Amino acid sequence: MAEREADRSVSQTVRAQLALRDLILSGGLRPGERISELQAVETTGVSRTPVRMALVRLEEEGLLEAIPSGGFMVKAFSERDILDSIELRGTLEGLAARFAAERGVSSRDLEPLKECLNEIDGLVRQDPISVEAFSSYVALNARFHALLTELSRSAPVIRQIDRASALPFASPSGFVMAQSALPEARQILLIAQDHHRIVVDAIENREGARAEAIMREHARLAARNLRLALRNRTHLNLLPALALIKSAAAD
């Protein structure tokens, strides 16, 4: 009975965490805006204890900041914050790719990655690429990165990549939708897909250093997307969370 209650509490915490995160990243809560436990309870429909835990988790993710007088405040981020998070994720993904290459991966294990690449090929062949195709790309890109990480066969590395990807805007597809309306959009996706194919080839040929280098370079495309997205804030409807990021001039 006690175990069932504990599971239910965890489930409620996750539900509240996801709901509040979506509210922040959709622009429902603005940078500097205060959110109290009571407000979060009313917003999520979850009781106070799991809500309290959810708020703490969002503070650990970096989306919220605790206020000494009580409650939490939505954080704003500098470009440097985001760039550092992207670089951290790229470093860890590079390590995962190197482990996969050096430890060896069977053709059977690589098959899901290659199937994912073929599906992405079908999207990036479009010219221009539709917003719907970009949305599909986000899901396929997330799947590719998850499959690649699993090939490392390293639980500590997988865990740290999950943590790094949860940092604000650091996930592999963090800025893809924001770039979808830009002139450079298709070019960037083509480069990203080329990186995907090169890293799979490097892993297949057991070239650890090459696999690591390409994944670190691949993450830097997200930094390029960040700069493009911030330069074109007219497309905030595609990524309302851009409002959380201070421009370099405001740092």
Score class of each variant (00 low, 15 high):
129 I>W: 07
74 V>G: 02
101 A>E: 11
140 L>I: 03
138 V>W: 04
141 N>H: 15
17 Q>A: 13
49 T>N: 06
182 L>Y: 03
12 Q>I: 04
13 T>L: 11
28 G>N: 07
114 K>V: 12
3 E>H: 13
191 I>F: 11
159 R>K: 13
143 R>G: 06
127 D>R: 13
241 A>I: 02
235 H>K: 11
24 I>V: 12
121 D>H: 12
149 T>L: 11
138 V>C: 08
93 E>Y: 09
79 E>C: 02
172 P>C: 11
146 A>T: 12
12 Q>C: 09
85 S>Q: 03
16 A>V: 06
230 L>C: 03
10 V>C: 01
200 V>Y: 12
135 S>G: 04
61 E>A: 12
115 E>Y: 05
183 P>H: 08
56 V>W: 03
155 A>S: 13
91 T>E: 13
81 D>W: 00
101 A>F: 10
136 S>D: 14
140 L>Q: 12
182 L>E: 06
92 L>W: 11
167 L>W: 03
94 G>A: 12
111 E>G: 00
102 E>W: 12
104 G>E: 10
111 E>C: 02
28 G>A: 07
236 L>Q: 02
176 V>S: 11
81 D>H: 04
229 A>V: 00
51 V>D: 02
238 L>R: 15
60 E>N: 05
181 A>P: 08
47 S>Q: 13
118 N>Y: 11
129 I>H: 05
44 T>I: 07
202 A>W: 08
115 E>T: 07
77 F>K: 03
227 R>H: 05
63 L>W: 12
147 L>M: 14
154 S>K: 07
169 F>I: 00
196 H>S: 10
40 A>N: 04
248 A>Q: 11
251 D>A: 12
209 A>G: 08
241 A>K: 04
69 S>L: 07
117 L>G: 08
